[in-house]
Amino acid sequence: MSNSEPRLVIATPPFAKRPVNTPGVMRHVIYALVPAMIAAVINFGISALLLILVCALTCMLAEWLTTGRGPLSQSPAGDGSAALTGILLAMTLPPGLPLWMAALGSLVAIFFGKLLFGGLGQNIFNPSLTGRAFLQATFPVAITTWVPNMGIADFMTLRGDTFALPFLRPVYDGLTTATPLARMKFEGLPTEWTDMLFGTVAGSLGETSAVLLLLGGVYLAWRGFLNWRVPTGIFLTVAIFASALHFSNPEVYPDAVHHLLAGGLVLGAVFMATDPVSSPLTPLGSWIFAAGIGVLVILIRQFGGLPEGVMYAILLMNAATPLIDNLTQPGIYGAVKPAKGEK
């Protein structure tokens, strides 16, 4: 014990704190993405690995350059959110995309998707998808050029013109192929659902491993870092809407399993739509938001010009988030109910 005067700190309660902070949450989301990232690298080799690294590092650099350039431990660039934005962006890109395009997309994701709004917590749109939308508009060919899934044996084989120089048209000398959604949309060809579930198909880095993405989502929901209502609502809406169309005309419309497993739906529903910053705060709002995404995905996939609609569906519902939040403020304790059994 101490005989001298105690050194007391005067602060305000509460003095108990849940042992988790925001960088910790970001880290856990990144951990949850690790299995899917490993799968992407196995499927698409070194091109995938380079894309993930370039996107993550460019995002962190962009954040660091614009937020004071202090030591990483003190800088917002070190809180994990920029790295996460980069990883998520990489997961939406085709494996053969030239790295300079990926880096440009990362800069747009951080500058225009996040920092212009005021940084972490202030952005209206999901930053990764903002970057992806920019790339889609700017390089429509490169971002829809898919290479087949070749497995780990060809790890060192580049899957496209990965090292293309900036502003030169990338050259695709290898084999290209179509994603399950494009095959269905433009050729009417279905894909085995087991191939889509385990990711042995063509597509973006994170479009090809539904089961691992779901695993990551379950982990996050279990730890309480993920709003489970959003992916649940999206899957349900997509399943119901797609089934309704399918049963009205099975010749034209694929079944719900196809829609659930193909393309970026799992990635989008589990990791993009659940971005807390750009999705509603309230439980009811989360359901509305999720249903809106589900409906838009099917509308775009079935009736729009693009084979895939997850990105635009999420971005559109991001824009609706402030309105949804305002309309779904929770009713407070004791707001309406009269006393039991009394007049």
Binding site: L120, G121, P276, S279, T282, P330, Y333
Partner: peptide, 18 residues
């Protein structure tokens, strides 16, 4: 850190505030 709108506080508040 900035609020990331994770809604943990909404799920904790016993009087259902925001």
């Amino acid at each position: 850190y900035p609020c990331i709108r994770c809604s943990a506080c909404l799920d904790a508040c016993p009087v259902y505030l925001n």
